[in-house]
Design a binder for these strands. Structure first.
Lengths: 197, 197, 197, 197
DNA sequence: GATGAATGAGCTTTCATTCAT
DNA sequence: AATGAATGAAAGCTCATTCAT
């Protein structure tokens, strides 16, 4: 294997480990030594891959947003009604919340809350554009096909992002009486009803 | 004025100042000396009112939740259709986000993200029950009058809390092209469509 | 004793201890814990008196410059010929180099060499003006009385500062075969010959 | 070209690059990676040429001292009065301060201040003997020809080294109102007056 | 000779909390 | 009730040097 590939691989392993620790314990409660120890790596070497804790956090949000966006892209590129697609997107989101909860939690507990960390480098929503872009495409498509009502994009986007995020937050707080998958149908229906033409 | 009253007054002024600083700068970036300085008070004395930084944060979330709950209680106790009441609640929320953004931001940036701070003392959603209870009452009433579809409470609550919170988050990120009030009608309609019978 | 006085006293004791350590071991080789330990003080508390290591270094140069300037002021205010005054100033400088070598060494080994430390706050020669001002007064007086040749101030100042500093440097390197006092007469004569009208 | 020559060439390029960085940014603020990067060379390879950062610093001072000494040697070997030679030496020094300021700055900002770096290997003035020896020869010659007063060598040497170094320091601080060449005549005259028989 | 990833001790600085006054 | 100097553990980050390739 080439050296460049090895380095890329290690970089990704750092991202994944840090993602998990940040999500679980919070950005400020996770220390660089914590991350390095879990990776069986020296603190100094970690800084050969990311120039600061903040920069690491920024790379993670890009990585996560990209990963989520990719899955939604598949839905966008397939055939289907708006109602079906909404159901698919909700399913993707909740499945990920179940299987890789750290990704969704990272949005909620790190990105959303530690503004100062993302201030320089993630202005606007540039670091989460991977995800947002796909939602935007989905919405435009369905408005184009007259399945969804034509309204301000942010009104629709806030519904998606906020609603799904809110449910995962409730899950994280252990206040949901049922497993998260239980809510897929209800929530898909609510979203569709909210947005349909 | 009685001494007890004076103490209660000072207690509240601490809460309000800390609320503002925590919301603006984040929990971990706000220091106890920061709060004391802004209050023109000594750090030692501040500890006569709150036994720790965490306890102060917990009191703030109760205070904020209560304040928001109270406003919704007014809606609950007045006459009106479900559609009207949804519009009123959205208006209350966004008006507060405009006029006292620190309260909403505290939910998003402090309560939601610093789990460890609220772990001992705010288990479940006990510290935000002031707000949740009112949403619950609203929902029960409207289901009772057959205006809203009978569904799992959390499916409905997640919609409210997540959607509104998400919009305020977008506002905080300065990505909304319009003022937040602009979205009141759209969003009220979306919520009503989502939940109506 | 008043609290403010106690604080001023402690402040000065920090300055003196740090002065000694910086002079002896160099700025970069002296750590904040080194200084705190020698003062039997906690690291944190030291930061209640000086906001950073750099600021401490800046306060020291002001303090030192002032102390040296004061001694020269006495010469300036007394009667005497230029030749006598030069001899007195050289004597003061070398006596200080003997008795409080850390002050002179601080000029040479800390102030002169660690430009970045003094870049913000000591621009130009503002932090050593206590000393420079007196040399300037001395020179102006003697030019005014026609005892010294009228020439560019910096040509004269460089002679004083450089020559005396250079000798103390040689002393510090242990290359001088004799005690520093031995050179007082020679050097005073050289300076006088260099500058006389 | 022979391998040994190539190595010597690379060695010198390291010295020159390090000289410049150390002079500009200080010894402790210049890292080995900084030097390697500027040379487009790996840090590991740099250690094939110099066994440590300290050893590199010592080689630089020898190199610099030799270079300066060589120029003065030319003066020493030419005909001329003491007054002329002093003028020539001052001119050499200030010209170098103008054209290759890093050499003179290295004396002032690195050699003079970081005693610990030069402690093992440059005891006394052994690493700057290239320069000192020539000044010594100059002084002996002129005393021998009865042009300069016979006095302790260090009294005379301190004048040269300190005075010229002091002026360059003032130049580095940007406090000199004129270009450094402007001072050549004044300073040469002052030195001659100080030392003449 | 040449590379640069890896090490890890060490640095400056911060801050919740205490307690003598 | 009120003060703020004092504590000290812990954080993020740096960098001379090594060594497998």
């Amino acid at each position: 294997m080439k050296i460049a590939d090895k380095k890329a691989l290690k970089r990704e392993s750092i991202i994944q480990t840090a993602l998990q620790l940040f999500s679980t314990n919070g950005f400020h409660k996770t220390t660089i030594p914590d991350i390095a120890t879990k990776l069986q790596m020296s603190v100094g070497n970690l800084y050969n891959y990311f120039s600061s804790k903040d920069m690491l956090a920024q790379e993670i949000i890009k990585y996560t947003s990209e990963a989520l966006g990719e899955k939604i892209r598949v839905v966008n590129m397939a055939e289907g009604t708006a109602e079906e697609k909404i159901h698919q997107i909700v399913t993707i989101y909740f499945t990920m919340a179940k299987e890789k909860p750290e990704m969704i939690e990272y949005f909620l507990r790190v990105y959303l809350s530690n503004r100062e960390v993302f201030a320089d480098g993630c202005e606007g929503m540039v670091c989460v554009s991977g995800f947002i872009t796909e939602i935007m495409i989905f919405f435009d498509d369905c408005v184009g096909s007259a399945e969804l009502r034509n309204q301000d994009f942010f009104s629709a986007f806030g519904l998606f992002m906020g609603y799904l995020g809110g449910m995962v937050f409730l899950k994280g707080e252990n206040v949901l009486p049922k497993e998260i998958e239980f809510y897929i149908d209800d929530i898909s229906r609510n979203i569709y009803n909210a947005l349909k033409a």
